[in-house]
Simulated assay, not measured.
Amino acid sequence: MKNPLFYRFSQFIAFLMGARVFVALLLTFALYVSTFFLFNQEESLRNFVFDFKVHGIILCCILSILAGGIINQFYDREKDRVTKPFRTRVQNFLKQKYFLYAYIVLNTFSLGIAGIISMRVFFFFLIYQFLMWFYSHKLSKLLIINNLTFVSLSLYPFFGMLFYYKTFSLQIFLMSIFIFVMLLIIDVLKDTLTKNADKIFGYYTIPNYFSSAISRTVIVILLIFAQVSSGLIILKMGLHSIMSYYFAASIFIQIIAVFLVLNQTKYSKFANLNMLRIWIFVGIISMLANGINQYYFF
Rank of each mutant, 00 (worst) to 15 (best):
M1D: 05
N3K: 03
L5D: 06
F6W: 12
F6I: 13
F9C: 07
F9Y: 14
F12Q: 06
A14Q: 06
V23F: 12
A24K: 11
L27D: 12
V33K: 04
S34K: 12
T35K: 05
F36R: 07
F39R: 07
F39D: 00
F39E: 04
N40A: 11
E42G: 00
S44D: 10
S44R: 03
F48V: 07
V54M: 14
I57M: 12
I58F: 10
C61Y: 02
I62G: 03
I62T: 14
I65L: 14
I65C: 07
I65D: 11
L66Q: 10
G68W: 14
G68H: 06
G69E: 04
I71L: 09
N72E: 03
Y75Q: 09
R77S: 08
K84P: 01
K84R: 14
R87E: 14
R87S: 13
V90H: 05
F93Q: 03
L94F: 00
K95Y: 03
Q96H: 00
Q96I: 08
Y98T: 04
I104Q: 00
N107R: 01
I113A: 00
I113T: 01
I113F: 01
V121C: 09
F130D: 09
L131A: 12
M132D: 03
K138R: 15
S140G: 06
L142Q: 13
L143V: 09
I145P: 07
L148P: 01
T149F: 15
L153I: 04
L153H: 05
S154M: 14
Y156R: 11
M161Q: 09
L162P: 04
Y164V: 02
K166S: 08
L170C: 01
Q171G: 14
I177W: 13
F178D: 07
V181Y: 09
M182E: 13
D187C: 12
V188F: 13
L189N: 15
K190H: 12
D191G: 03
L193F: 04
T194A: 15
N196C: 00
A197R: 05
I200K: 15
G202I: 08
Y209H: 12
F210C: 08
S215C: 15
I219F: 05
I219T: 06
V220M: 11
I221R: 09
L223P: 00
V228E: 07
S229V: 08
S229I: 07
I234A: 10
I234D: 03
K236V: 10
I242A: 05
I242L: 09
M243Q: 11
M243R: 02
Y245S: 08
Y245L: 14
F247G: 05
F247H: 13
A248V: 09
A249E: 10
S250Q: 09
I251L: 10
I253G: 05
I253M: 15
V258W: 11
Q264C: 06
K266W: 10
S268F: 14
A271I: 13
I284F: 09
I285N: 06
S286N: 09
M287Q: 12
M287C: 13
N290D: 15
G291T: 06
I292V: 14
N293S: 05
Y296K: 00
